[in-house]
């Protein structure tokens, strides 16, 4: 693992502020992860109580988003962070938006589950599968952030390609379903929205992974394929510092 955890700042208050930002981001990540899990549960088990819970959590997530952004702005203004600290602030403020969007997508899924009348007729295997994948991605991304682990982040990002493939396949089968039984169109469309949301969650989780790579390695790997990411990270810094 990369040894990036440096000692404390000469200003202990600065250290505390940075620690607080990281902690708040991880707390927000935890909340959003729970939201996503609950939204899927609500949909799959047709449980309206759980769906309500997801919607209520939204406020808390939004509040944390604003709070973290404020903390970042404060550190930028008062501490003029550099190097790892600067990268932390930049990465966190980007991750915060992605997390908030994942929260939004989860809320949309919860909303869909509330609107669906009775059992969904068709198989939910696709949703279950993709849901599981993106949940795992998000979990790994947050874990990589907490541990400063760029390798793990890239590994998690790699799953996004699988999610996209599964998404395409699930969409095709739903189109077939609508053609076979036009009466199902409304309900299938709802399901398509859910799939779409999950696919977006995968994209946001991947964005977080990219920010972790930036945070740890200082390399901007946005819009890179997984292979390009790996190459960028392996192209070590010239300093010859020990790993």
């Amino acid at each position: 693992m990369t040894k990036f955890i440096l000692g404390k700042h000469s200003s202990s208050q600065f250290s505390q502020e940075m620690e607080s930002i990281r902690n708040h981001l991880l707390r927000m990540g935890g909340l959003v992860e729970k939201q996503l899990g609950d939204a899927l549960e609500a949909l799959l088990n047709n449980d309206s109580a759980v769906a309500e819970k997801v919607l209520i959590t939204e406020d808390e997530v939004d509040e944390l988003e604003k709070r973290i952004d404020e903390e970042c702005a404060r550190v930028l203004a008062l501490r003029q962070p550099a190097a790892i600290d600067l990268r932390t602030i930049l990465a966190v403020s980007k991750c915060v938006s992605d997390l908030e969007r994942i929260g939004d997508e989860s809320a949309k899924i919860a909303q869909q589950s509330l609107e669906q009348e009775g059992e969904l007729p068709m198989s939910l295997v696709g949703v279950k599968h993709i849901g599981h994948s993106v949940k795992h991605m998000l979990n790994s991304a947050l874990d990589a952030f907490a541990r400063f682990d760029a390798d793990k982040a890239i590994e998690a990002a790699a799953h996004d390609d699988e999610v996209d493939t599964e998404y395409q396949a699930a969409m095709r089968s739903l189109v077939t379903l609508m053609m076979e039984d036009p009466r199902s169109i409304t309900r299938v469309l709802n399901l398509m929205w859910v799939l779409r949301s999950l696919e977006r969650v995968g994209d946001h989780a991947r964005n977080i992974c990219e920010q972790v790579v930036y945070l740890v390695k200082g390399k901007d790997v946005r819009h890179f394929s997984v292979d390009e990411m790996l190459a960028a990270v392996q192209n070590k810094r010239h300093g010859g510092e020990p790993e």
Partner: peptide
């Protein structure tokens, strides 16, 4: 140097972690 210093000592200094 200010975004991605090569040397850990440089990094420690510019991020205010110098003892």
């Amino acid at each position: 140097v200010f975004t991605q210093p090569e040397n850990p000592l440089t990094e420690a200094y510019i991020t205010g972690r110098f003892g």
